[in-house]
Design a protein around this nucleic acid. Structure first.
Lengths: 176, 176
DNA sequence: CTTATCATGTAAGCGGTTACATGATTAC
DNA sequence: GTAATCATGTAACCGCTTACATGATAAG
C-alpha cells in the first residue's frame, strides 16, 4: 500500500484537507508512516483527476481557506480492491543494525552509544504509543487497536533487546 | 548508511566482485539489506571513479571473467568517516500494520490471514537467521554477532505478537 | 515584532528497483 | 536441449523527500 491508498483509507472515515491528512498521519500513524506535504498535495490532485476524490473549497473565518476532499464511490471501490490485493513484505531499513554489523571497525564505547540511542528511541516510541492509546484507544475499532498494540509490543521488545545488549557490552569491556 | 558505504564496508574485509557482493548481501544481510544488481554495479563504477576502489580483472577457468574491487586507503578513510557520522533513524515500512489499521473495512477472516502470514514470515526469518548463526557464528566478530542476535530476537518477538493476536482474533470471532 | 499555526503548492533531486540485454559454462 | 549458475551492465521508471515559495492570522 502506497500513499495513494493510505490517503483514500483516511478519507473513508471522513472528508479531510491535505493539511488535516498530514496532521492525522503525524498524530496517529507516525511510528510506521508519515509522508511529507510534497507527497500529499500532488497525490490528492492526481486522485481527484482519477475520479477517486472530489474537492470542495471551504472558507474559514480567521484561517486560510482549505480544500476538503471527499471520497467518491469509485474511490471507495479502489480502496477496497487495494485491501484485497496481495500485500508487500515488511521493509526494515536500520542504520544501527548495519553499523553493528561493521562494529569491528569502531571501539566498544561507540557501539554502546549506538545501542543506548536505540534503547532511548524505543523507550520514547513506547511512551508515545501508550499516549495515543490513552487518548484514542477507547473509540478505536478493534483491528486498529491491534495495529497500535503491535507497535507497542515491538518497541518494547526493541527496548529489552537493547538493554540486554548493554549488559553484554559492559561484560565484554570489563573482561578486557 | 547507503549502498555506497555498505559496499565499502564489505570490501574492508576482502576484495570482491559485484557478483560476490550481491551473494554476500543475500546470504548474510538479506533480513535488513539487499540491494539489486542494478544498484551494485553502477555504484562500484562510481566508487572507482571517486578513487575509493581499484578494479582488477580476474580471468577464471570454466567461468566468465570477473572484476574484483579492492578498497584504497582513501576508501578506508571514507568508510571510517561514515561510521563516525550521525546515523539515520530506523525506518519500518509495514504493509500489514497499515492494513490492520484499516481493518474495519474487511472481515475477520481476512485479518486472520494477514496476521497468520506475518507469523509464518517471522518464523521463517528466525529459522533462517539461526542457520546463519550456526554456519558463520563461530567466526563472526562480536558486534556482528550482536546484529544477528538482534535480528533473531526481533523476529521472535514478532512471532509471539502474531501468535497472541491470533488468539485475540479467535476469541473475538467466537463472541459474535 | 516575532514566532507558531494554518494552509497550499512546485521543482529538483535522491536512492533506489525492474526490466532488459548479453553470453559463457555446467549439470541434469 | 534446457535449466541453473556465473557474470556484467544499462535505461527507464518510481515513489518519495527536501527545499523553496507564498501568505494570512493568532498568540506571546
Amino acid at each position: 500500500m502506497k500513499v495513494r491508498h493510505a490517503i483514500l483509507g483516511l478519507l473513508m472515515e471522513e472528508a479531510r484537507s491535505g493539511y488535516e491528512i498530514k496532521q492525522y498521519f503525524e498524530n496517529r500513524l507516525a511510528y510506521f508512516y508519515d509522508p511529507s506535504y510534497g507527497t500529499i498535495y500532488p497525490t490528492l490532485k492526481i486522485l481527484e483527476q482519477d475520479g477517486f476524490l472530489s474537492k470542495t473549497t471551504v472558507t474559514q473565518e480567521g484561517k486560510p481557506n482549505k480544500n476538503v476532499y471527499t471520497i467518491t464511490d469509485t474511490g471507495i471501490q479502489e480502496f477496497l480492491d487495494c485491501l484485497k490485493s496481495p500485500y508487500e513484505p515488511d521493509v526494515v531499513r536500520s542504520d544501527v543494525l548495519m553499523r553493528l554489523f561493521f562494529g569491528t571497525y569502531v571501539d566498544n564505547s561507540q557501539i554502546m552509544e549506538w545501542v543506548e540511542d536505540t534503547r532511548l528511541q524505543a523507550d520514547h516510541n513506547v511512551k508515545n504509543l501508550l499516549k495515543i492509546k490513552e487518548l484514542y484507544g477507547y473509540r478505536m475499532p478493534f483491528p486498529q487497536l491491534l495495529s497500535l498494540d503491535y507497535g507497542i509490543a515491538l518497541n518494547r521488545s526493541k527496548l529489552e533487546i537493547a538493554e540486554s545488549f548493554m549488559i553484554r557490552l559492559h561484560e565484554r569491556e570489563s573482561q578486557s
